[in-house]
Design a protein around this nucleic acid. Structure first.
Lengths: 124, 124
DNA sequence: TATAGCGCTATGAATAGTCAAGCGCTTTGC
DNA sequence: GCAAAGCGCTTGACTATTCATAGCGCTATA
């Protein structure tokens, strides 16, 4: 598509904006997991989609797949060094989210300014 | 979908992983822009998609829209305080990308180990 | 006068993601 | 000893999202 010079930020965003990728990375930062375990931890992801994402992430070198046994099937997915390095990205997203995201009236996320002490905190 | 307690990181990721959102934010961090200008700067985004994204981001409070005149149409989109705060997120993505992303043999992005300081990274 | 540009919206086609079911096989629980 | 649950996925049918392209009314510039 684009023939302009290679821009690392642009490329990084292209990877990270793919649906579920950040969720997958965040989950794997807690430790290696098997396919179904990962699926459950991420929550709501389709196995077909997860398989496609994991294959892409593995080809990119963000995730490493280890097959312990074919039958019974036993596999673990873990982050590579480049994947673990996304810790900083997740951390800054975390900080931003904690500071700016609240739940709106209809459950939709809303970004406010700095938290006012007067405003009620969303609590369940 | 999920009925578990509100998790700000999860919510933040949900917002940021939507296609084009990070690109839009990154562009708007450089300054306010009109619709077509923004479209060109982001590069490759469909106007229909951009319109939907901007409306959502505006409703969320990440982006503010200012209509200067209806005819001729003149509008600018800018980041709110919450949007500007994403500077840190973009920065860490930038750092990660510069350090770990290279171009593979077929033009596909690949994540390698630590990059040599001698190697230059093109900026856009 | 002609052209290009503004901020969008309307189409239909292409692509991406989702749901549900299920495979062969082993372990676990009773 | 036998049923049920779990493993890592795959398949096929469906839906949602994104795409390319065209165009609107109008004005500012050439």
């Amino acid at each position: 598509m684009e023939q302009r010079e290679f821009c690392p930020v642009h490329a990084a965003i292209q990877v990270l904006q793919e649906k579920w990728v950040l969720h997958i990375v965040r989950t794997l930062l807690e430790g290696p997991r098997g396919f179904n375990d990962l699926s459950r931890s991420v929550g709501g992801i389709n196995p077909a989609t997860l398989a496609v994402r994991l294959e892409r992430l593995e080809r990119m070198g963000l995730v490493s797949k280890t097959v312990h046994s074919y039958m019974p099937p036993r596999t673990t997915y873990a982050l590579t060094e480049a994947g673990v390095a996304l810790h900083d990205v997740i951390n800054s997203i975390d900080a931003w989210g904690r500071r700016f995201i609240r739940v709106g009236a209809e459950g939709e996320p809303v970004c406010g300014g700095v938290r006012q002490p007067s405003e009620p905190a969303a609590s369940h």
